[in-house]
Design a protein around this nucleic acid. Structure first.
Lengths: 221, 221
DNA sequence: CTGGATCCCTCACGATACTG
DNA sequence: CAGTATCGTGAGGGATCCAG
């Protein structure tokens, strides 16, 4: 049952046969953040039918991208995690995400933001060069969503949830995308109330430099 | 009619909404090689229904990835070509193709090879560093498929069809993949007759160095 | 509660025929 | 050559149910 094929002996076509099915790459995206339970994935993929999620997980496991692991006691349960082969897709996920971010205007009705997609957004926009001389911890809040980033020596660590004593808490909404894309300056963002800070305000400028969505090229009609 | 959506405000999800539909990225793949007519694309995508091809082209044009251009006389006709935004996907196509190439075993029954997919394969596996001191022209033949590559000063030029006086003509079949992946040495390839050469045989070794599929990591079960 | 399996319904896709 | 029209099929959407 090798899902639908393209009939071409070609690496790229083969890649699409493996991860080109609907939802598949979104599952991979969330798993690049870390191992996840069935229910975690379901929460992170609003609207995915459970049968589809189960089917994709089976296919991805069969193709060697993910591994199903039964947790030892007392945690009990099952997690899915990327194999090394699956993890090699991280870079593609990052680049495709950056490319797609350029087409992100305003959220459409009903669109939500998930923790893991935001973590991926931070990791994919992270510019080590711009973070060389920075040592800071951030806590980012978008409504219910809370996550954190720790920057040390040009390296980035991210995770869900709050931090004990972050250098800066950024309380915001989807406007953070405009900030990261350079469409809104930190000063503007504060002035119009789209971000509210707790901590060292100068770290917001660094944030926008370190997590940066490159601008789209001029439209060619 | 923004095809099916994922309901997430996320650059990556948006990217999949734009190019995640079946066939869409294969069309982009072929267009990275150059402008193509409807019929060219159809030939390069064996089995694509014409209504699907037409629908994808409309969607991709609407999303600003491709441009429909009516050729001036006397050529007459219509070509599709990537816009600058669409062309930014080239790198993702290359990387995904390399990743997928690792899962390419033997061709499955009925699988074909197309010119443009082979050109993309050459361009994505090309290693400028390995070609620094090389100046050579290759003609590659796989059955009916004929294409060429010209390497000058670490730069690569590719195209369909033969060349006037290539330094080396490589007459082969899908085994060329094993050669590029390092699974078969140039000597072996010649010995077992999977490649037949016309020209300077030593250039075959350079070919395998310059166009190289990196090996897969050890399987992690 | 997690981790799915099962059902039905719809629409995107596949195959083919046909037209400007 | 460059598509449009038609129609059948199966993957995906959505709700519900079940076992450990």
């Amino acid at each position: 049952m090798p899902s639908r094929t393209y009939g071409q002996y070609c690496g790229f076509a083969r890649a699409l046969e493996v991860v080109g099915e609907r939802w598949a790459l979104l599952i991979v995206r969330d798993l690049t953040v870390g191992p996840r339970r069935f229910t975690d994935l379901r929460r992170g993929l609003p609207g995915i039918p459970t049968n589809i999620l189960a089917a994709r997980l089976k296919e991805l496991e069969l193709d060697g991208l993910i591994r199903r692991r039964v947790l030892p006691r007392p945690a009990a349960g099952v997690v899915y995690e990327l194999t090394e082969y699956g993890a090699e897709l991280e870079d593609v996920v990052f680049r495709l995400g950056l490319w797609g971010a350029k087409s992100l205007g305003q959220p459409r009705p009903g669109e939500t933001v998930t923790v893991d997609s935001l973590i991926v957004a931070l990791r994919s926009t992270f510019r080590p060069a711009a973070a060389r001389d920075l040592r800071a911890t951030y806590e980012l809040r978008l409504g219910e969503i809370v996550l954190h980033a720790r920057i040390v020596d040009g390296a980035l660590e991210t995770g869900q949830g709050p931090l004990e004593a972050p250098d800066l808490v950024i309380d915001t909404d989807v406007a953070v995308k405009a900030l990261m894309a350079g469409e809104m300056s930190p000063a503007e963002a504060i002035d119009n109330g789209r971000v509210r800070l707790t901590g060292d305000p100068s770290l917001l400028t660094r944030f926008a430099e370190v997590f940066h969505i490159p601008p789209a090229p001029a439209a060619s009609p």
